[in-house]
């Protein structure tokens, strides 16, 4: 009898050991462009954050960071959270996250430059640390990079296993004159992301937010 109990306990321990806590988890890092031209679009970002809060499950991670003049910094992370495994506590965390994000939106100031690459590098670092099975970088920007003088950003991106989704890529005034600029911008980022081992997607229709996290 004792032997059977020991075997059963070993089996349970084995199963518990098999419990995979990372492979099915999702981690999302959202980059918000706060440059002068794009700051007016930030209201739309709230809807995306709300969608993410409603979609992500207990155990998943979410971080929102701004893209400013030098984005490769932890200081640019506005809010980050890994939701608790208990749904009730995770709901409380979501409420708090939303409140803090709304506070940020009400007090956000425009940045003079746009360091998207730095933001992506920071995002990749954060996502890899979470150890999540599905990793997303959401770039809420017009994808027009405007670096400070002396900043070195022509470095290859390491985005293996990361899906990069460009959201609300607005057309600039110059794009209207020459649409090739817009397409070129998208193509350049796609090329960089794919070269870094990541996957690329563009979602401009914010009425179809379900496309963001769909594979």
């Amino acid at each position: 009898m004792k032997r059977k109990v020991i075997i059963l306990l070993s089996l349970l321990l084995f199963l518990w050991g098999c419990a995979d806590t990372s492979g099915h988890r999702t981690a999302v890092y959202m980059l918000l462009d706060t440059s002068g031209t794009y700051r007016l679009e930030l209201e739309k970002a709230e809807a995306i954050v709300k969608y993410l809060l409603g979609t992500l499950n207990p155990g998943d991670s979410l971080a929102v960071a701004r893209i400013d003049s030098g984005s490769f910094s932890e200081k640019d992370i506005i809010e980050k959270v890994t939701f608790d495994s208990r749904p009730s506590y995770a709901n409380q965390q979501k409420r708090l996250f939303l409140t803090r994000f709304q506070e940020f939106l009400s007090s956000v100031k425009g940045s003079s430059h746009t360091d998207i690459t730095g933001g992506i590098l920071q995002a990749a670092e954060f996502l890899n640390e979470t150890g999540a099975g599905r990793k997303y970088i959401l770039i809420f920007s017009d994808l027009e990079e405007d670096l400070q003088k002396g900043q070195i950003r022509d470095i290859p991106l390491q985005l293996k296993g990361i899906r990069v989704v460009a959201l609300n890529v607005t057309k600039l005034r110059t794009d209207n004159i020459d649409p090739r600029k817009y397409m070129g911008r998208l193509a350049t980022w796609e090329k960089r992301v794919l070269k870094g081992g990541g996957a690329w997607k563009v979602v401009n229709d914010l009425d179809r937010l379900d496309r963001i996290l769909s594979d």
């Binding site: 098999c18 995979d20 806590t21 988890r25 207990p58 155990g59 998943d60 495994s85 208990r86 749904p87």
Partner: peptide, 19 residues
């Protein structure tokens, strides 16, 4: 199933199934 996630956690999996 839903309240059990409050007891054993909603983010862990055994194989392809939620714990």
């Amino acid at each position: 199933a839903l309240p059990m996630s409050e007891m054993v956690g909603g983010g862990s999996y055994i194989g392809p199934f939620r714990t």
